[in-house]
Design a protein around this nucleic acid. Structure first.
Lengths: 204, 204, 204, 204
DNA sequence: TATGAATGAGGGTTCATTCAT
DNA sequence: CATGAATGAACCCTCATTCAT
């Protein structure tokens, strides 16, 4: 039985890996289920045993990959002794930027398809055990002694600003390359944080 | 001859309008050229007299619609007596947000498909006379007595921050609805501007 | 499993037979894949499981039919006691002419499409087991005690002379009907053979 | 009026020349009427003022070109002092072979489409004034002091033998190149002629 | 559980032909 | 005579999905 279960897992993994490979190299629309099963070495019908359709496997991949990236950045952060909130967030952002910079097709795939909604749904409904719970990132804000008007909105704005500017900058060098963009971006993040900070009572 | 040219213009308009209607209601992938010509009341072959394929008409629509939106906001701005740079930019952003808020399918269509690159290309290569040259917006920054480290990057960051946060907020109410988001967003914009400001000599 | 394979073979056969029927009655250009699958009673996609396109099935048909015709003639020849080379070749030619005469659409189909090249390629690359290897015909020349300057060229000239004159004569009665043509043609063949004969030493 | 007629003739010529160019370079099936009128610089409707369809213009071209080739060979023959029938025919054949050898696309075009029937019909029904009446070639046989059982069949066999063997040899080098084929072919022609010769009374 | 042959609706595109100008 | 915009049937081919094995 363990053997069968192993085999099952392998088939599923093969499909996921192959689909990712094809999605990133030729795009989702141009990738057919035929392509996927052929490259994965399984029969066509088998695909439907594990996934509802192309978009189902896409969503699962996005959540999986995004989670993995956060996990790496998080792990790296814990190796540093950084304590200041600004520094910690900028460290995370920088780490993630570099991951995407090193694997542009991954950025292309995730950014084109990731939406706040898909991501949440998949993380929550998924039976996979993701490496890290993305929401741990909230704890970074919460554990800080500083207080913010609306932490979730702050986080949301940072995430959106970073992801959309980096998409253009890393993939197309527009309007400037990523290295040129970074200082402005990091400055902007610090200002965003400041703009939402609430002076705590004991600061008096 | 004028009659023929008029007829041609009407056919083209009919196709553009119909395509937009279908793209926004059922999405681009689900919209077929069959759907478009049927709804527009022209023959299938006629489509190919005016557009290369589905993506050609999409690109032309995006540039057309985006230009129109800027034009409206720009016009409204000129009716105000606003002189401060921050106020002027936030007025534009607010106006555009409200346009999208009033026509969510338009936001969906543009945001999913607009990229810095497509937009530039279509505006430049197009033979259409757009209502307003988008690059006029640069003049708002340039005409201000204040100076910035990198005006294009500043503009880019504002545009990306606004468009990506509003996309999620207006369409899905995530993480908060647009009315709730606005104050944070406008604050953030002011901080972004300040973060890039270069103190001019006479300020001493 | 044998059941599935049998079914596959039947589908393929049905497509081949139907295509031949349509090609010969209405011509290749006028025959659409739609026509073929409809008449064969299979789905359109099924066609593409077995053949690349219309020209693929055509080539396979030509080789198949041509091979079949040779096979019949060859078999008939072996039933005779003919030993003289001239007589043997003319017997083959006559038998083939009569086959074509009895099935004019077959002649039309093959002659319009057969070329030395296609025929060779298909016979060689095909996985089908043809009834007879066409090149056996060379052995008729080689096994003869008589010697020729260039047996392949001789064979080639005979084949081309026969096929092109018979095409016109059988199908259009031009310039004379086949029965009238035959004596001249057979005479001509004997002369062709004689014109290439090399007197062997022992003939002295 | 003369001017208009001239203009008409020019349009027709332009269409014929362009069609020939396209037919020989990309084949008849792949050539569209659009291609033809575009390259000829006339409107689409104009095509239908001069020709019924693609096959109409093809037939007219074939007769035109074939006639031209015969005319050149005939003219060259008259420059020689050849008197023997065999020599005269072989001279013609050789000349024509060389013309085709020098313009292989012409050979491809004519051989693929020429049939005894089309040729006859077009020559007879055409309003064009062809350079030479193809049937003059009969006079070569008739003017010879030698007598043949069936001159038309003899001519027919020679023509078919030459055209079909040369098609394969010149275009594909199969089974041998044209230079290698020639001696065998010329020998064969002489034998064909001999095989039909009727000894004239005075030969007794 | 796994297969893969079969399906067939529907995709985008072409192009001969017409006809109002 | 000449035009060329418009037509729309028909083309080939793809591919997500099913289901008997």
């Amino acid at each position: 039985m363990g053997k069968i279960d192993l085999n099952k897992k392998q088939k599923r993994e093969a499909l996921l890996n192959t689909a990712f490979e094809l999605f990133t190299t030729q795009g989702i629309n141009k990738t057919t289920i035929n392509n996927i099963v052929e490259a994965a070495g399984v029969a066509k019908g088998t695909f439907y045993l594990y996934f509802k359709d192309k978009y189902d496997i896409r969503n699962k991949l996005i959540a999986h990959k995004a989670s993995h990236i956060f996990s790496i950045a998080d792990e790296a952060l814990s190796q540093t002794g950084l304590t200041e909130l600004d520094d910690r967030i900028i460290f995370l952002v920088d780490n993630i930027i570099e991951q995407f910079n090193a694997d542009k097709s991954l950025l292309n795939f995730i950014s084109k398809n990731l939406s706040w909604g898909i991501f949440k749904n998949e993380l929550i409904s998924s039976s996979d055990n993701y490496d890290v719970n993305f929401y741990n990132i909230y704890t970074i804000l919460e554990n800080s002694p500083r207080a913010f008007k609306n932490p979730e909105v702050l986080l949301f704005m940072i995430v959106e600003l970073v992801s959309s500017t980096c998409y253009s900058s890393i993939l197309y060098g527009e309007p400037v390359c990523i290295e040129e963009l970074k200082p402005y971006l990091f400055d902007a993040i610090r200002q965003l944080i400041k703009s939402q900070e609430v002076k705590s009572p004991e600061a008096n």
